[in-house]
Amino acid sequence: MGDSFTQLPLQIDPTSKAVSVPESAQSKQLTAELTALNALHRSLLNLDTPVPPPPIPVNPKRSAQIQKLRESGSASFRKGNYPDAIRMYTFGIEMAVGRPGWEPSGLVRDEVSVLYANRAQAHMAMQNWPQAMIDAESSVEMKKAGNTKGWWRKGRCLIEMGRLEEAKEWIEKALDVEEDADLKALSKEIDRAIEKKA
């Protein structure tokens, strides 16, 4: 097996250098692989160095831009201009997710987590509970520990939508990860609400 491989009937476009495969040999996996390969090739061409640098250090330009978007989003939020805040945060998320794949994933996690938590807050301010819940959940998925706000916000959204059982489960999970007064208060509130309903 060591040196053997399956020869694929690949073609390469002389100008765009895009790799493709004739229709007869297409399979879903292979097509997906070639799409990923061509995308990676394009992003490699944008580099100054021939090969991707090791993950650290990071190009500071993008980090600064993301930081700036987050700050202007928060400024809009404070002024009460929630749609604008959401737009800024969304740009920031796109920018953070759009980092080239070889940059540290931990950094992407941190940035995306904060931005989603903030966007959740803006959606909550507009009483858009389902979207806020999804954003808070995304934030928690990216960063579980040290993300009290994310946990709290999804719990709050579930309460607002009347999904008390789910909220209870969620907050219990949150308290396993994080000991926090706000979360405990929310947990008590859920218990009271459930009692009242029963």
């Binding site: 993950p55 997710v97 794949g101 070889w102 940059e103 994933s105 995306v112 989603y116 998925e141």
Partner: peptide, 15 residues
């Protein structure tokens, strides 16, 4: 580099 590529792909998929 490949390790970061792999974990980046995973977290993007989760989100």
């Amino acid at each position: 580099t490949a390790n970061e590529m792999a974990s980046n792909a995973i977290i993007r998929k989760r989100v």
